[in-house]
Design a protein around this nucleic acid. Sequence first.
DNA 1: TAGTATAGTTTATATTATAAACTTGTTTAT
DNA 2: ATAAACAAGTTTATAATATAAACTATACTA
Lengths: 98, 98
Amino acid sequence: MTMFPKLDPILHSELRLAVMSILIGVDEADFTYLKKQTGATSGNLSVQIDKLMAAGYITVEKGFKGKVPHTTCKITTAGQEAFNKYVESLKEYLSASK
Amino acid sequence: MTMFPKLDPILHSELRLAVMSILIGVDEADFTYLKKQTGATSGNLSVQIDKLMAAGYITVEKGFKGKVPHTTCKITTAGQEAFNKYVESLKEYLSASK
DNA sequence: TAGTATAGTTTATATTATAAACTTGTTTAT
DNA sequence: ATAAACAAGTTTATAATATAAACTATACTA
């Protein structure tokens, strides 16, 4: 792509972008919250969270809340940077005639 | 997705978005021009142009320029509307804390 | 006329997204 | 106490997508 910057494939996904969008505005969020906010299925969310983690864009802590398993996600600095860069890149696509 | 609008899958594709981004700013563009501007391979471009056409977002005219085959693409009204809507939807994802 | 270039299309493959099925454990009703 | 339903995920299978490789057809060029 000559005039269009490459879009980070990790972020160029509807659900992963939604997750990142939530996480960037909040200190942390748990699995259930992310599921409710995004409307995703558990399976899909689980997979996409894994990918974001593998990319180093979020950290995932698995523990228990009382007796129930509980997963907390938090955006990393790398994740914030990648998100910002993605937004900047997208702008090149969205602003026609430039 | 409850708080995030669904992103038009036809447009949520790097190459198709690039093509639409070019076409929205220009009266028409031919295959070769789109290929150069996007840096895409011919095969990929051919396939994605087909999909945009199938979606009714662009028109494709195949003819000859002298003796050489020549394909001209033009955005449709539906395509412009879809593009604008996509941009609006994306904003919901990009503006954190909203 | 053999070789290279142009303008694509078709087909095959690799990657992704998504849903369905499953696991593990908990709470609730009987 | 135990079966039924629920919660929080994970794993696996399938469907959809993107992309590249191979191919077609014609034209130009040495």
